[in-house]
Every structure is written in structure tokens, then in C-alpha cells.
Amino acid sequence: MSFLDLFALDFMQRALVAALLTGLAAPAIGTFLVQRRLALLGDGIGHVAVTGVALGLLTGASPTWTAVLVAVLGAVLMELIRERGHTNGDVALALLFYGGLAGGVLITGIAGQGAATLQAYLFGSLNSISSEDVWFTAGLTAVVLVVTLGLSPQLFAVASDPDFARVAGLRVRAYNLLTAVLAAVSITVAMRTVGLLLVSALMVVPVATSQQLARSFRATLLGAMVVGCTASVGGLVLSAWLSFRVSVAPGPTIVLLALAMFTATWPIGVWLRSRSRLMAPFPEVSATPHRSPVEHPHEHGRDCGHPAVPHGDHVDYVHDGHRHAVHGEHYDEH
């Protein structure tokens, strides 16, 4: 069987559809989590969902269903702890993470299932996706995308300043719970391809990649979805290709591909940020001491190589820790 023959296989087509949907939904909701500085919330929900999967294995119910259920409950619980909690809220979340993971592994053992079964959920698996799963995840993804993009003005306002949003009349708590539920749903959607332990990477890494280049929230959101799609579909294909030689789960491939994209854009981001920092206008302070340097050997100009930074109605040339402003025949220290 050649590499291209793979695409004719049912399970591969299903996996591709699932990867595409995951790549769209996870970064979309992830952008709002990153905006609220809750980048690790997805990781916590993923850990809790392990218990959900295990409950499915134990009871014979569909692990996808039980994972959605437990992940949503866990997400709501975490959001309530975060909302009400004091300075130690992160410790409470950590307790929940470890409880979820340990409980999941324990229950899987009780259910008489080996580590291999759980492995498929922890790191993703190409051929574990049934056709009901695809329909189910497609439906959930559509809901996540419509709600996330449709309510993005409200979610953005709540994520950037909850006090302001509340005085503007938004039900901040409801929106926060909604974000948590959407995150839980997109995590269970991503479970089959990336796996629960790595799913959070797909919510965060595309956002981090996209914000290296983007300046607006909107561009970051859309860019993250593009990066997420590329990484998850590309990673899936890559892992299928590699699987001719070695056995690799799709999850790690997807995440490493996303990280590679981040690594590629990061230097550009560093350069853009440092340039915008250097060229940011100096504050206009009214009483500037008028002090001229004794002698200046160099004539500043457009191409002199010194950054010309706007300062009120003129520019200051920055060099050797000075700011020189042209004043007639000489330079003033600003």
C-alpha cells in the first residue's frame, strides 16, 4: 500500500475530517482563554476528561459521550473555583487536574482495559474514530464555532475587562461559564486526533504563533484557526506517512508541527516587537531642560543609522543613550 492509497481508506478520511474540525475549533476558543490568561485551563479540562473516558470504558457507554459530560462538569467546576477563589485558586485547579488523571487511569484498570486502550485517548489515534464519532464531533464543532465567532464581541469584552463588561450589562458569569463549556466541548472533539494530554497545545500554540505577527485580536483569532488547521491536518498526514516505518501517534506529530510553526514565526515577532518598542513616541513632557551638548561630531539625518523617534512635533535621534533633537545649528538633549 502506498502513501496515497491511505487517503482512500475510510478511517483516514474520517480522521482527516476530525483533524480539520479540531484545528478550527480548538484555537478559536483558545484565543479567548489566552486573552483571559487562562492558557492552562484547557490542559486541566483535558486531564479531567480522562476520568470521563474511563467511566465510558467501565460502563460500556460511548467514551466520547462520557468524556463530554465529565469535561463539561469539570470545566464548570474549575470556572466556579476560579471565579470565587482567592489567591490559591490555582492550587485548587491543580488538585482537580491530578485527581482527573489519576482517577482516569485507576478506573481504566478497574474496567479491565489495558494502557493501550487509554493511550488512544491520551495521545490520539488514527483508526479509533468511528463514523458516529465523526458526525458527533462535526456537530459539536459547528456549535462551538457558531457560538464562539457569533458571540465574539461579547466574549472579547468579558475576557478583556469583566468589571467593565458587567457594568455594560453583560452577564459576565454566564459568558465565563459558556467559555468553559465551549472549551470542554472542543477538547473532547480534539480527543480522537490530538489526545487529551496534548489537546491544550492546540488551543494555545496556534494563538501564540498567530500573535507573533498579528496586531489585532481579530487577526490573531483568524490566524490561529489557520495555523491550527494546518498543524492538525498536516500533523495527521505526517503521522500516517511515518507510520509506514515507525509507530507514531498523531497527537505528538500535530503538536510538534504547531510548535515548529511557532518557532518559525517567533524571531519575526521578536523583531517586530523590539522595533515597535524602539520607535514608540517619547512622552511629551512640557518642561524639557534646554541643554546643548558642547560639540557634536556627527550630523543626524534620515539615513544616519540612528533611530528617529517621534517626540511631539519633531524627532529625536537616539544614539549612545542620548536623544538629540535638531535645534538650528546644534542639537538639544531631550
Binding site: 469584552a157 467593565f164 455594560a168 496586531r215 485580536f217 490573531t220 483569532l221
Partner: peptide, 21 residues
């Protein structure tokens, strides 16, 4: 209150969020 979150946003976007009400 800080106008900056974990994701970049433009001045227009932040001011635009004042319309949510």
C-alpha cells in the same frame, strides 16, 4: 484596569468593545 490582555488588540477593537451594552 489594564487595557491589555493575553492577546494583542487594536485601539479600535478595545474601544469597540464599549458597544457591547
Amino acid at each position: 484596569s489594564s487595557a491589555t490582555g493575553g492577546v494583542p488588540a487594536t485601539v479600535r477593537e478595545v474601544v469597540g468593545s464599549g458597544r457591547v451594552g
